[in-house]
Amino acid sequence: MHPALQGLLTIAIGVSGCVGYFYLSNQFLDKVLFPARGPNAGRNINRANMIRPWLFLFPALAALGLYLAYPVVETLRLSLTDRVPGGGYEWVGLENYIQMANEPKFWEAMRNNMFWLIIVPAMSTAFGLLVAQLTDRIRWGNVAKSLIFMPMAISFVGASVIWKLVYDTRPAEQDQIGMLNALYIFFGGTEPQTWLTIPFWNSFFLMVVLIWIQTGFAMVILSAALRGIPEETIEAAILDGANPFQIFFKIKVPQIKTTILVVWTTITITVLKVFDIVFAMTNGQWETQVLANYMYDKLFRANDWGVGSASAMVIMLLVTPILIWNVRNARKEME
C-alpha cells in the first residue's frame, strides 16, 4: 500500500479509534454497567464516577507506561545481562559497567559531556538573558527576538549543515568558503584551520551549534520573566540612584532567579540527550564523543546491547537529580 494512503488510513483509524473508544466505553459504563436508574441509581452514579477517570486515562497511561516507564526498567535489566549467541540472555552483574569503565572512549565521552553540561546551559542562558534585557525596551525588539528565536525551528541536522559550512576549510592557496576561516585569514591568520579536527577545541565548535539553537528558548522564557518584575522595585532603585548595570544585576536578576534555574535545567536535559549534532558533524571522531552518541555506537554499530544499555543508564543517572527536583517543585506548586 502507498505510504500516503497508509498515513491517511492511520489518521482515520487512530482518530476514530480514539473517539470510538472514549465514546463507547463511556456509553458502556453509563448504560450497561452502572445505569443511572432503577433502585441502585445513586450508588451506580457514584461507582461510574469512580471508574470514569480511568477510562479517560487508560490510553495515555498505557502509552506512558509502555514507551517511557517500562524501558527504564528493561534498560536496567539489559545493562546487567549479555546476549548469548543463539538467543537468550545471561546475567553478568556489573560486568558491562566495568567493561565500559575500561574504555578510554567512554571517559572521553564523559569528559566532553561535562564540558557540554557546563558550557551550553551557561552560555545559552547568558545570551538569552542578554538578548531579553537588551530587546526589552527597543521598538524593533520583537523582530530581533523573532530572528534569534528562529533556530529553534531548525533541526539539529539542518543546524549541523549550516555550521559545517561556517567551519569549512579550503587549501591555503584557495579562497576560503567557510566564514570562520575567511575571518581568521582576514584578521591575520596564516594557515586555514580545519576547526572540527583540532582535539579538545573542536568540542567547543560543536557546542556553538547547540548554544545557537537554545539561546532563543532561554530568551523567550527569560523575557517573559523580566516583564513580570514589579515596576516599583525598579523605580525605587532608580530613585536611589542605581545605574543600569546595578538595576540589572542587583534588582532584576535576583527576582528571576527561579526562572533562570528552570531554563538552565531544561537546557541541561537537552544537552544530555544531544545526539544529532555530534553524529552529523564529526560522529565522535577527533575526540568529540559524547554519551548519547557513544551509546548509539554501542547499540547499533557494535551491536553490544549490554554496554549500550549501561551507557544509557549513565545518562538516566545524570538526569535523575533534575527529575527529582522537577517532581518536588510540581508537587509543591499543586499544594
Partner: peptide, 24 residues
C-alpha cells in the same frame, strides 16, 4: 492517586528517550 499521576508525568518529562530504543 491523581496527584501521584501528575507527579509521574512531570518525572517522565525528562526521561531520555535513549533508554527506550532497545527495549521498544
Amino acid at each position: 492517586g491523581r496527584a501521584l499521576l501528575i507527579a509521574a508525568v512531570v518525572g517522565l518529562l525528562v526521561v531520555p528517550l535513549q533508554l527506550a530504543l532497545i527495549p521498544l
